[in-house]
Design a protein around this nucleic acid. Sequence first.
DNA 1: ATCTTGAATTGACTTATATCAAGCGCACTT
DNA 2: AAGTGCGCTTGATATAAGTCAATTCAAGAT
Lengths: 195, 195
Amino acid sequence: MSNFEALFDYIQEISGKLLSADDKHLLMEYFKPKKLRKRQYFLQEGDVCKYIGFIVKGSARTFTVDEKGHEHILKLSLENWWLADFESFYLLTPSRFNIEALEDLEVLQSTNAQIEEYLKHIPAFSAMANVISQNYTIANQKRVQAAMSYTAEERYEDLISNYPQFLQRFPQNMIASYLGLSPETLSRLKKNSFK
Amino acid sequence: MSNFEALFDYIQEISGKLLSADDKHLLMEYFKPKKLRKRQYFLQEGDVCKYIGFIVKGSARTFTVDEKGHEHILKLSLENWWLADFESFYLLTPSRFNIEALEDLEVLQSTNAQIEEYLKHIPAFSAMANVISQNYTIANQKRVQAAMSYTAEERYEDLISNYPQFLQRFPQNMIASYLGLSPETLSRLKKNSFK
DNA sequence: ATCTTGAATTGACTTATATCAAGCGCACTT
DNA sequence: AAGTGCGCTTGATATAAGTCAATTCAAGAT
């Protein structure tokens, strides 16, 4: 049986509210543990993203493949993050993204309909959702700004200060793709910044 | 007196719910009409963004100035859009952005504390907030992806299909900055796409 | 222990975009 | 009507980053 404590702790910490015993039972009833081996897909391009996953253990990448066959990583995800293509999840449209486990992955997953129930019935859950929504808005605003106006080197330094754990957990070519760079460029950039 | 009907219509349309007479009175009580002349600032870098504005008429740009003195436009805004630096508005931190009227601007503005009240007491408002939050998440996800993996030309074509009204309302150098391009590059890019 | 695979590095070269500079044309002032 | 400022275009050149190719190295497979 999977570790619901991680989810409970997360909800309580982010929301600043406590979960009742009933709340916890409700969460355990509809969040389903799911395990993926490294390289397995949580979501495939073209499918509707029916589930949102809370990462208990492991890591994943969200990426597209362009016409030239090049992969572009949009998001790298670790423990205590939510995993989904929100566009597809909210609108029920086929996803343009793939989500792949980069390490063996344990998630707790739920459907949109069940999330709606949690929002209605669990105050801590709904408070958490509001905080997350704010955080996402802020983080995305920053990321758009960085992508548009920073140089490659500035974006890399930004990553180091905001997500230092990425350097330990993800191979450098994944980091490069996440930053919108070729692996060669990131390699050279690191060498030069030692000066 | 400013046009609250635009705000009422917007809330009802986005939320799919009706506003009661009481709801409308509450909104009129705490949303304050504010007019800015072209080139005036709704927000200055370094100030806390105390107000969120709903644009009734006019347009604005949200931009930063980098160390070299170059401006980077993060957002272009038109009628029926919300105007704020959400990071500063939510966290009450000094903003890194400027928001400037590009045309004479009429907004209805409110503080974070009042927005919280609306979320509690007006169901249509809170439903609207959820939809907007979803839309923002989706739009930002797309924009990040575009910035990272599209060429300048693809980003321009993306803009044409998503926001065709921008071409009518904003000068080309603003569009270029919004796309993360120099004005010269956008000019050349347009010429070449006529082939 | 050897073989294979893929990541990281490095070098040479190409391409996209920025920068700098000049000129044009339109709109607003006076 | 002439003058001024500003946005847009165009040309020449510089720079950042991408592409292609070769080499090294470490990790996993047999």
